[in-house]
Design a protein around this nucleic acid. Structure first.
Length: 423
DNA sequence: AAAAAAT
């Protein structure tokens, strides 16, 4: 099906054509007609299949005909779990909505406090926001939720998890009742638990659920190495020597601390690497992401701040240096590669501390990840810092000793050097 | 159990 067959307003079609869309993706084909009819939608679809455009096209079409912009009273709200994702959605909206008289405003923490505040006062049609800053302005009555007629929750399962649910509920309570607004839920992973929670805020009678058979994109080539903690870095270096096409590598770790440490190790080996995590100041986060997108960086070491929704062209490899704790995060992380028709490789390391997550991940994705134990020549030990230069021990040799050794430098119980109380 | 998100 083509966008031109959808009976969209001329202004929307013009934007769609300009960003180069002609054919609808399967998820767009399923969701856009339903969304245009005003029904609630809960859609799970593989990463990189055009979910953002699906809800943006629907929102623009609705808002073009439903009324006019007034100050302090936005008409639609899009919620997302990271600031980068908010920025990206706004960028997509600028392209698709280039010919629509619809004002889209990003609301998120870490930057532009007065600018965002003023924009809300002046009046916007669509807010794209992370929860914290939005609630801040709402409490100050910079704007009201009274005229919100459509709500989109992107990466819905993340928005409904422990860390976000309180803020999200606060916002949902302030919105017009679900009978007087449209609600749309999107994610690559939409668990039954999350759907149950979310349906409290949706019109059950008018809800359409779209669930795929396969959660991961088939074009991602997946591979897993069983490697001990101490083997992981030499294995990473070894892989880089072999995979000469590793031009844009996104490396995921589970903690902010590990992200910093691994980045330093890569840099010490003269590799162009940078780190992105919630500890990095917002303006730097944006610059690093831009540098990575432009190819100025080969490596981006990231926490799960970068695992969801972010589109980066031509990521050749995703490395799960730490196996993620949540199976959903595995799906989102590897979804950063092989996007929009491209190919990509996802290589995961399973060490003695994290390998126990593997069965859950494999059950979730419904298949075994091809795995192997590294060979002698998979390693490259001759890096500059912190490891023996001799030959590699066999994989999983003395895991108990390695685990015990690993616990030592954690300084448990001691006061933090920065003076703040430890969490 | 960690990450993200307001100042």
């Amino acid at each position: 099906m083509k966008f031109t067959e959808l009976n969209l307003p001329e202004a929307v079609l013009k934007g769609v054509a300009e960003v180069g869309f002609t054919e609808l993706t399967p998820v767009q084909e399923e969701t856009i007609p339903i969304a245009l009819s005003g029904k609630d939608v809960a859609a799970q679809a593989q990463t990189g299949t055009g979910k953002t455009a699906a809800f943006l096209v629907s929102l623009f079409t609705r808002l073009l005909t439903s009324g006019k912009r007034t100050s302090n009273n936005p008409r639609a709200l899009i919620m997302a779990p990271t600031r980068e994702l908010v920025v990206q959605i706004v960028e997509d909206a600028k392209g698709l909505g280039a010919h629509c008289p619809i004002k889209v405003q990003a609301i998120f923490g870490g930057m532009d406090y007065d600018k965002q505040r003023q924009a809300l006062k002046d009046g916007v049609d669509i807010i794209v926001a992370t929860p914290g800053r939005l609630i801040d302005y709402a409490k100050q009555r910079v704007f009201t939720f009274d005229r919100i007629e459509a709500l989109v929750i992107d990466e819905a399962d993340r928005m409904f998890d422990m860390g976000f649910i309180k803020d999200l509920r606060y916002i949902l309570r302030k919105l017009p009742d679900f009978e007087h607004r449209q609600t749309m839920l999107f994610s690559a992973t939409l668990s039954p638990r999350v759907r149950e929670l979310a349906y409290e805020f949706m019109d059950l009678a008018e809800r359409v659920e779209i669930l795929p058979e396969q959660v991961t994109a088939e074009r991602v080539e997946q591979l897993l190495y069983h490697a001990s903690r101490r083997e992981k870095f030499p294995l990473l270096m070894g892989l880089l020597k072999k995979e000469l096409d590793a031009e844009r590598v996104l490396v995921f770790v589970n903690t902010k601390r590990e992200a910093e440490y691994l980045t330093e190790r890569l840099k010490a080996n003269d590799l162009k690497a940078a780190v992105i995590s919630g500890d990095i100041p917002q303006n730097k986060r944006m610059r690093i992401l831009a540098d990575f997108k432009e190819g100025k960086l080969t490596f981006l070491v990231a926490t799960d701040v970068a695992s969801r929704g972010i589109h980066i062209d031509a990521v050749s490899h995703v490395i799960n240096y730490d196996l993620p704790q949540d199976p959903e995060d595995y799906v989102h992380r590897i979804g950063r590669t092989a996007r929009a028709g491209a190919l990509g490789k996802a290589i995961s390391f399973a060490d003695e501390d994290l390998v126990f997550h593997l069965p859950d991940i494999e059950e979730y994705i419904g298949r075994k990840i091809p795995s192997r134990f590294p060979e002698e020549d998979d390693f490259f030990w001759d890096y500059k810092r912190g490891a023996p230069r001799k030959k590699a021990p066999p994989a999983h040799a003395k895991p108990a000793a390695a685990a015990a050794k690993a616990k030592k430098p954690r300084r448990r119980g001691k006061p933090r050097s920065d003076g703040k109380p430890s969490a």
